[in-house]
Design a protein around this nucleic acid. Structure first.
Length: 228
DNA sequence: GCGACAG
DNA sequence: ATCTTGTCGC
Protein backbone atom coordinates (compact mmCIF):
# COMPACT_ATOMS: atom_id res chain seq x y z
CA UNK A 1 0.00 0.00 0.00
CA UNK A 2 1.46 3.34 -1.06
CA UNK A 3 1.31 6.19 1.38
CA UNK A 4 3.40 9.23 0.57
CA UNK A 5 2.84 10.64 4.03
CA UNK A 6 4.24 7.53 5.69
CA UNK A 7 6.65 8.81 8.32
CA UNK A 8 7.97 5.48 9.56
CA UNK A 9 10.17 3.63 7.10
CA UNK A 10 12.01 1.97 9.99
CA UNK A 11 13.95 -0.54 8.01
CA UNK A 12 15.73 2.12 5.98
CA UNK A 13 15.82 5.12 8.22
CA UNK A 14 19.08 7.14 8.19
CA UNK A 15 21.66 6.94 10.99
CA UNK A 16 23.19 10.36 10.63
CA UNK A 17 20.37 12.55 11.86
CA UNK A 18 19.61 15.81 13.60
CA UNK A 19 18.05 15.64 17.07
CA UNK A 20 14.65 16.55 15.59
CA UNK A 21 14.87 13.69 13.09
CA UNK A 22 16.02 11.29 15.78
CA UNK A 23 13.05 12.16 17.98
CA UNK A 24 10.62 11.51 15.13
CA UNK A 25 12.22 8.13 14.41
CA UNK A 26 12.28 7.18 18.08
CA UNK A 27 8.64 8.09 18.52
CA UNK A 28 7.72 5.91 15.56
CA UNK A 29 9.84 2.98 16.75
CA UNK A 30 8.44 3.22 20.28
CA UNK A 31 4.89 2.81 18.97
CA UNK A 32 5.86 -0.49 17.40
CA UNK A 33 7.53 -2.02 20.43
CA UNK A 34 5.67 -4.91 22.04
CA UNK A 35 5.81 -4.98 25.81
CA UNK A 36 4.09 -8.33 26.20
CA UNK A 37 5.90 -11.54 27.12
CA UNK A 38 6.59 -13.56 24.00
CA UNK A 39 9.74 -15.35 25.12
CA UNK A 40 9.49 -18.82 26.63
CA UNK A 41 12.54 -20.88 25.69
CA UNK A 42 14.99 -18.51 23.97
CA UNK A 43 17.32 -21.25 22.72
CA UNK A 44 20.18 -18.82 23.15
CA UNK A 45 20.86 -15.42 24.65
CA UNK A 46 23.04 -12.95 22.76
CA UNK A 47 25.02 -10.15 24.38
CA UNK A 48 25.94 -7.10 22.27
CA UNK A 49 28.16 -4.13 23.06
CA UNK A 50 30.39 -1.56 21.40
CA UNK A 51 33.94 -0.48 22.16
CA UNK A 52 35.73 2.57 20.74
CA UNK A 53 39.22 2.63 19.28
CA UNK A 54 41.64 4.94 17.50
CA UNK A 55 40.84 7.88 19.73
CA UNK A 56 37.11 7.30 19.40
CA UNK A 57 36.97 7.30 15.60
CA UNK A 58 36.40 3.57 15.14
CA UNK A 59 33.62 1.51 16.71
CA UNK A 60 33.90 -2.23 17.24
CA UNK A 61 30.66 -4.05 17.94
CA UNK A 62 30.66 -7.54 19.38
CA UNK A 63 27.86 -10.10 19.51
CA UNK A 64 28.38 -13.17 21.68
CA UNK A 65 25.91 -16.05 21.65
CA UNK A 66 25.41 -18.00 24.87
CA UNK A 67 23.54 -21.22 25.43
CA UNK A 68 20.82 -21.05 28.08
CA UNK A 69 20.59 -22.06 30.87
CA UNK A 70 24.09 -23.51 30.58
CA UNK A 71 25.62 -20.13 29.69
CA UNK A 72 28.39 -21.45 27.49
CA UNK A 73 29.74 -19.48 24.54
CA UNK A 74 28.41 -20.84 21.27
CA UNK A 75 29.64 -18.22 18.82
CA UNK A 76 31.02 -14.68 18.75
CA UNK A 77 31.50 -12.08 16.01
CA UNK A 78 32.91 -8.57 15.71
CA UNK A 79 32.20 -5.77 13.24
CA UNK A 80 34.13 -2.52 12.80
CA UNK A 81 32.49 0.68 11.64
CA UNK A 82 33.68 4.29 11.50
CA UNK A 83 31.99 6.44 14.13
CA UNK A 84 29.53 8.84 12.47
CA UNK A 85 27.63 10.30 15.40
CA UNK A 86 28.75 11.83 18.70
CA UNK A 87 27.46 10.58 22.01
CA UNK A 88 24.36 12.53 22.98
CA UNK A 89 22.28 11.41 25.99
CA UNK A 90 19.04 10.03 24.59
CA UNK A 91 20.46 9.34 21.12
CA UNK A 92 22.85 6.50 21.91
CA UNK A 93 21.33 4.06 19.44
CA UNK A 94 22.17 6.24 16.44
CA UNK A 95 25.82 6.05 17.43
CA UNK A 96 26.06 2.34 18.26
CA UNK A 97 23.44 0.40 16.31
CA UNK A 98 25.06 0.53 12.86
CA UNK A 99 28.00 -1.53 14.10
CA UNK A 100 25.84 -3.78 16.27
CA UNK A 101 23.56 -4.65 13.34
CA UNK A 102 26.60 -5.68 11.29
CA UNK A 103 27.94 -7.91 14.05
CA UNK A 104 24.54 -9.58 14.43
CA UNK A 105 24.42 -10.23 10.69
CA UNK A 106 27.69 -12.14 10.95
CA UNK A 107 26.15 -14.70 13.27
CA UNK A 108 25.34 -18.05 11.72
CA UNK A 109 22.18 -18.39 13.83
CA UNK A 110 19.37 -16.10 14.86
CA UNK A 111 19.00 -14.71 18.37
CA UNK A 112 16.48 -16.05 20.86
CA UNK A 113 16.93 -13.03 23.12
CA UNK A 114 19.35 -10.07 22.99
CA UNK A 115 20.80 -8.23 25.98
CA UNK A 116 22.01 -4.69 25.19
CA UNK A 117 24.20 -2.28 27.11
CA UNK A 118 21.94 0.71 27.86
CA UNK A 119 18.24 1.34 28.33
CA UNK A 120 15.16 0.01 26.58
CA UNK A 121 11.81 1.48 27.65
CA UNK A 122 13.49 3.57 30.34
CA UNK A 123 14.08 6.41 27.89
CA UNK A 124 12.58 9.92 27.44
CA UNK A 125 10.61 8.74 24.41
CA UNK A 126 10.50 5.08 25.55
CA UNK A 127 12.95 4.17 22.81
CA UNK A 128 16.36 3.33 24.20
CA UNK A 129 18.89 1.29 22.24
CA UNK A 130 17.30 -2.03 23.21
CA UNK A 131 13.88 -0.92 21.95
CA UNK A 132 15.37 0.41 18.74
CA UNK A 133 17.31 -2.80 18.09
CA UNK A 134 14.33 -4.99 18.91
CA UNK A 135 11.88 -3.27 16.58
CA UNK A 136 14.39 -3.13 13.72
CA UNK A 137 15.37 -6.81 13.95
CA UNK A 138 12.22 -8.33 15.38
CA UNK A 139 14.25 -10.10 18.07
CA UNK A 140 13.24 -9.94 21.74
CA UNK A 141 15.55 -7.45 23.50
CA UNK A 142 16.27 -6.20 26.99
CA UNK A 143 18.08 -3.01 28.01
CA UNK A 144 20.70 -3.44 30.72
CA UNK A 145 22.05 -0.13 31.98
CA UNK A 146 24.92 0.19 34.44
CA UNK A 147 23.67 3.62 35.44
CA UNK A 148 20.42 5.57 35.30
CA UNK A 149 19.28 7.74 32.39
CA UNK A 150 16.05 8.90 34.03
CA UNK A 151 13.43 7.84 36.55
CA UNK A 152 13.28 7.55 40.35
CA UNK A 153 13.25 4.56 42.67
CA UNK A 154 13.36 3.55 46.30
CA UNK A 155 16.53 2.11 47.81
CA UNK A 156 17.12 -1.47 46.67
CA UNK A 157 17.89 -4.11 49.33
CA UNK A 158 21.59 -5.17 49.29
CA UNK A 159 20.99 -8.83 48.53
CA UNK A 160 21.32 -10.35 45.05
CA UNK A 161 17.90 -10.53 43.41
CA UNK A 162 16.40 -7.52 45.19
CA UNK A 163 14.45 -5.12 42.94
CA UNK A 164 12.60 -1.80 42.94
CA UNK A 165 10.42 -0.42 40.16
CA UNK A 166 11.89 2.50 38.21
CA UNK A 167 9.31 5.27 37.78
CA UNK A 168 9.15 8.32 35.49
CA UNK A 169 6.31 10.82 35.84
CA UNK A 170 4.17 8.22 37.59
CA UNK A 171 4.74 5.58 34.91
CA UNK A 172 6.73 2.41 35.40
CA UNK A 173 9.65 2.39 32.98
CA UNK A 174 11.90 -0.36 34.29
CA UNK A 175 13.36 -2.29 37.22
CA UNK A 176 16.37 -1.51 39.36
CA UNK A 177 17.97 -4.91 39.96
CA UNK A 178 20.67 -5.91 42.44
CA UNK A 179 22.42 -8.52 40.29
CA UNK A 180 25.14 -9.09 42.87
CA UNK A 181 25.06 -8.54 46.63
CA UNK A 182 26.48 -5.27 47.92
CA UNK A 183 27.27 -3.90 44.47
CA UNK A 184 25.55 -1.02 42.68
CA UNK A 185 22.36 -2.20 40.90
CA UNK A 186 21.55 -2.53 37.20
CA UNK A 187 18.79 -0.59 35.42
CA UNK A 188 16.71 -3.10 33.48
CA UNK A 189 13.98 -2.23 31.01
CA UNK A 190 12.18 -4.16 28.29
CA UNK A 191 13.23 -3.46 24.75
CA UNK A 192 10.89 -5.57 22.63
CA UNK A 193 8.60 -8.60 23.17
CA UNK A 194 9.02 -8.79 26.96
CA UNK A 195 7.43 -7.26 30.05
CA UNK A 196 9.11 -5.72 33.12
CA UNK A 197 9.22 -8.72 35.44
CA UNK A 198 10.41 -11.26 32.89
CA UNK A 199 13.06 -8.86 31.60
CA UNK A 200 14.61 -8.66 35.06
CA UNK A 201 14.27 -12.43 35.51
CA UNK A 202 16.13 -13.19 32.29
CA UNK A 203 18.93 -10.80 33.18
CA UNK A 204 19.33 -12.23 36.66
CA UNK A 205 19.47 -15.73 35.21
CA UNK A 206 22.53 -14.63 33.25
CA UNK A 207 24.33 -13.10 36.25
CA UNK A 208 26.52 -15.77 37.80
CA UNK A 209 29.37 -14.33 39.82
CA UNK A 210 29.51 -10.81 38.43
CA UNK A 211 27.27 -7.77 38.43
CA UNK A 212 27.16 -7.71 34.63
CA UNK A 213 25.29 -10.57 32.91
CA UNK A 214 27.69 -12.98 31.18
CA UNK A 215 26.57 -12.31 27.58
CA UNK A 216 27.13 -8.55 27.91
CA UNK A 217 30.31 -9.03 29.88
CA UNK A 218 31.73 -11.22 27.11
CA UNK A 219 30.60 -8.81 24.38
CA UNK A 220 32.12 -5.88 26.24
CA UNK A 221 35.49 -7.62 26.52
CA UNK A 222 35.52 -8.60 22.87
CA UNK A 223 34.45 -5.16 21.66
CA UNK A 224 37.03 -3.33 23.76
CA UNK A 225 40.02 -5.63 23.43
CA UNK A 226 43.22 -4.15 22.09
CA UNK A 227 44.12 -5.75 18.81
CA UNK A 228 47.53 -6.04 17.19
C1' DG B 1 18.12 30.10 34.20
C1' DC B 2 20.10 25.76 36.65
C1' DG B 3 21.11 20.81 36.88
C1' DA B 4 20.76 15.98 34.83
C1' DC B 5 22.38 13.36 31.37
C1' DA B 6 22.53 5.27 28.85
C1' DG B 7 27.66 4.68 26.44
C1' DA C 1 33.10 5.33 26.13
C1' DT C 2 38.35 6.05 27.36
C1' DC C 3 42.97 7.22 30.00
C1' DT C 4 45.06 3.52 34.19
C1' DT C 5 47.82 0.80 39.77
C1' DG C 6 47.07 -0.20 43.72
C1' DT C 7 43.95 -1.01 47.29
C1' DC C 8 39.87 -1.70 50.52
C1' DG C 9 36.23 -5.09 51.70
C1' DC C 10 33.27 -9.40 51.53
Amino acid sequence: MQNTTMQSSNIHHPWQVTPAQAWQIQTSIAQQAILQDEVTEPGNIVGVDVGFHDKGTLACAAAVVFSWPGLNVIESKQAYKKVEMPYVPGLLSFRELPAILEALNELSTGAGLILCDGQGFAHPRRCGIATHLGVLTGYPTIGVGKTRLLGEHAEVAPERGATQPLIDKGERIGTVLRSRSNVSPLYISPGHRLHFASAADWVLSCCTSYKIPQPIRAAHRLASENKQ
